[in-house]
């Protein structure tokens, strides 16, 4: 029971953590190498990793997606997709995909003469699912060691979220202590009393039977 309980608790909080890690914005320091467009199939379950731009018809099963190829400050490659989120989830309300594509093309630099950019994005890069983080904005920084600035938005959202969880949790705890626990204890007391009574009854019954037996003899 102990392990089952913790399995569910850890599972639940892993999903919550994964949700926020996917949805909240993060910043990488990158050097833009190139941009490209590629036709993507949207028919299988990895559809959830692509956006739903407003300009897209609802029954389309493939379309062109823009990508931004970069090398991060640590020398490893990272490819971002560049899609409108429109009015859909997550609520970035990004409509300027074409502008960002232009900026990204303008930001291309070579290894010998690098220009470093901070790129704000959400989402996960996963090679097996072919999922790409979605780039939201781009701005130039002085170098690969540049600070990413304090993530105020994430701090505010997570603080509000955990405040809400704490509020619900403490109210539920108070409710449980004042209402549910006494009821359960009452139930248990009643049950034990009933058990005692049954045992008592049984004892009396057996005595009566024995008495009968003795009486008859």
């Amino acid at each position: 029971m102990f392990y089952v309980k913790w399995f569910f608790i850890i599972g639940f909080w892993s999903i919550v953590a994964g949700f926020f890690h996917y949805t909240l914005p993060q910043v990488d320091i990158v050097r833009v190498v190139n941009t490209y467009e590629e036709r993507q199939e949207l028919t299988d379950w990895t559809r959830i990793f692509w956006s739903t731009p407003d300009s897209q018809s609802t029954n389309i099963n493939n379309r062109d997606v823009q990508f931004i190829q970069t090398v991060r400050a640590n020398g490893r490659p990272m490819v971002y997709r560049n899609e409108d989120t429109g009015w859909h989830w997550p609520p970035y309300f990004k409509f300027d995909t074409a502008n960002l594509y232009t900026e990204a093309n303008d930001a291309i630099s070579t290894k010998e003469n690098p220009r470093w950019f901070a790129i704000k994005h959400y989402g996960w890069r996963n090679e097996f699912f072919s999922s790409f983080p979605n780039a939201v904005s781009l701005w130039q920084v002085e170098g690969p060691e540049a600070s990413k600035s304090i993530p105020w938005v994430n701090i505010v959202i997570l603080t509000l979220f955990f405040g809400l969880v704490w509020g619900i949790w403490s109210r539920w705890r108070r409710f449980r202590i004042s209402r549910i626990d006494p009821t359960l204890e009452d139930l248990q007391d009643n049950w034990e009393a009933a058990e005692d009574a049954v045992q008592d009854q049984g004892g009396r019954f057996m005595r009566w039977v024995k008495g009968l037996w003795r009486g008859r003899r």
């Binding site: 609520p91 970035y92 309300f93 990004k94 409509f95 300027d96 502008n99 939201v136 904005s137």
Partner: peptide, 11 residues
């Protein structure tokens, strides 16, 4: 909030 996010993201 939505108006602010739209402005900050796009403009």
């Amino acid at each position: 909030l939505v108006a602010l996010i739209i402005y900050l993201t796009n403009f």
